Computed example of a mutant assay.
Amino acid sequence: MGLSWQQGPLGAKAVGQFLTPEPFPERLLFVEPLRRRMRVRLDGQWVADSEDVVLLHEPGRYPVAYFPREDVTGLDEESRTTNHRDLGATAWFTVLEKKHAAWQHTDLPDHAKVLEGRVAFAWRAMDAFYEEDDRIVGHAADPYHRNDIRRTSRHLVVRDGTRTIANTKRPLVLYESGFAPRWYVPRADIDTAALKHVEGETFCPYKGLASYYDIGERKRAAWSYPQAWPEVAAISGWVSFEPDVVDVFLDGRKLVLEPGQGVVSHGIDRGLDPDELQERK
C-alpha cells in the first residue's frame, strides 16, 4: 500500500525493481514534506497544529507524521528510551497524562537530520488526527496510495464446487496500490442465498468498513463495502470473492491469490465508532 507498505517500491517485497547497476540497500527510508496543515487532538485539546509536517516512509510500516517540537504542546518527557534500528536513540513522552504517546529521535545520524527536533504521535493513543478540518483515520494518508476503478465486460464466474455463486459480464475491477486487481460483482448477478453474513468487520483507511460472508464451508470467502467512501463509491454494496478460498474464473482462467497480498487488518481508531466512521463521508 503506497510507497513503503505491501509491495510498494520501498517495501521489503517490492513488485517492481529499480534499474540501477548496484543493488539498493536492504532498507531505504524516505522523508518528504507533507505540505498540508495537520492537527492532533487529545482529551478535547489540540496537542499539535502545524503546516511544517514531514512524512516518514519506513519499509513495512505505514507513513508517520513528524511535527516540529515548537508546534506541539502537552509533552512530558519520560525516563523511557528505546533505540530505532536506523534512526538511533529515541525519547518517549507522556501527552496529557497518556503514557508512551509520542516520541522523538534524539541521536540522529547526519543523513537523517531532517527529523531533528521533530515529534511523532502514537496513532491509537490520540483521539483524532486532522488535515485541515477533515479527520484522517487509520494512519497518516499515504500520497502514493491510490484506487482506480474500471468497468469491464470480461466474464467472471464464481463457483463453490458445482454450484455457481456468481456469473457476470459487467464486473468492476479495483486497482489498488500494492495489490493485485480485485473484481467486484453486482448483487443482481450473484446467488445471494449462498452468502452467509458473518461477524467481524474490518476497516480500510482508503475504502471504509468491510463486511464478510461465508459460502458453504468456505469461511470469509467474500466481502463487501456496504457504504464505501466517496473515492471508491462505485463498489458500494458490490461483492468481491477471495480466489484462495472459493473458485473464481476470469474469462475461463482460474484466479489465484498472488504472493504478498496478505493484509494486516485495521481496527477502528480509538473513539471512532462505525456510525461515526460512515459520517466521515
Rank of each mutant, 00 (worst) to 15 (best):
S240F: 05
V198E: 12
Y213D: 09
L250T: 15
E231L: 07
R170H: 04
F67V: 01
R118N: 08
I235M: 01
E77I: 08
F241W: 02
G138A: 10
R218I: 13
H197Q: 09
L277V: 15
P23N: 05
V157H: 01
M38W: 04
D273T: 14
F249M: 06
Q227Y: 09
L55S: 06
A233I: 06
V173T: 14
V185D: 07
L10R: 03
H57K: 09
F241M: 07
V95P: 14
L250H: 10
A180T: 13
V31H: 00
L29K: 08
G262K: 13
L257Y: 12
G16P: 02
V157I: 14
A210I: 08
D269M: 08
L55W: 03
G11H: 04
R69S: 11
G60N: 00
I149A: 11
I190F: 02
D71E: 10
D191Q: 08
H266V: 05
Y212I: 09
V157G: 05
A194E: 14
P186I: 03
D43Q: 11
V64N: 02
P171E: 09
Y175G: 02
R170S: 11
A210L: 06
A180S: 14
Q104W: 01
E58N: 13
F203T: 13
R80W: 11
W229G: 13
R151N: 04
T20F: 01
V256C: 11
R146I: 02
A122D: 06
R35S: 13
Y66Q: 00
R35T: 05
Y225F: 15
A125H: 10
C204H: 00
L156C: 09
P171G: 11
A234V: 07
N83A: 03
D189L: 10
D134Y: 06
L19R: 02
L75D: 12
E51C: 10
L28E: 10
V40R: 05
S265T: 08
G117M: 12
E242G: 04
G161S: 02
A14L: 03
L250I: 15
P68N: 03
R36K: 15
R280Q: 07
Y225Q: 10
V246T: 03
R220I: 07
G44M: 06
L10G: 05
R220E: 14
D133F: 04
G267W: 00
F129G: 15
R218C: 14
K13C: 12
L277K: 13
P205H: 03
R151A: 13
E279P: 01
Y225W: 09
E26M: 05
G8Q: 09
W5I: 05
R37D: 03
R220K: 15
R253F: 06
V47S: 08
N83L: 10
K98C: 12
A101V: 02
A112C: 08
Q261D: 12
I190G: 07
L115F: 03
V54P: 01
Y213V: 03
V119F: 10
E276S: 12
W238S: 10
L174D: 07
R35L: 14
K281E: 06
D49I: 04
F24G: 01
S4Q: 05
E276W: 04
V31T: 02
V15E: 13
Q261W: 00
P25W: 00
H145I: 04
Y175V: 08
